[in-house]
């Protein structure tokens, strides 16, 4: 199923902790319910994003991996 994202964030090439810091910043600009699409190449981002989601409550609704690029769809669920 195609997910329509409201905002795109490119973190390709960035290392810890920048993908998490930028994701947090990007999600602040969204309304509750809106979806952020984030692309990262940091292999640690998969676990890190899961931990971040657990702590902040923002929901990762889908993840993908494509040629070493990790794709996250995050729904903003909290302020």
């Amino acid at each position: 199923m195609e997910i329509k994202s409201d905002k795109f964030l490119d973190c390709k090439g960035l290392n810890c902790p920048l993908p998490i810091l930028k994701t947090k910043k990007a999600i602040e600009d969204l309304q509750i319910g809106q979806i952020l699409e984030m692309h990262a190449t940091d292999p640690g981002s998969k676990n890190d994003m899961a931990a971040w989601s657990k702590r902040t409550g923002n929901e990762i609704i889908k993840t993908n991996e494509n040629n070493g690029v990790f794709i996250f769809f995050v729904r903003k669920t909290s302020l």
Partner: peptide, 12 residues
């Protein structure tokens, strides 16, 4: 600095 900034991003 990495831990502190990440903590803020995790609502800590």
């Amino acid at each position: 600095l990495i831990l502190a900034t990440t903590a803020i991003a995790m609502d800590m």
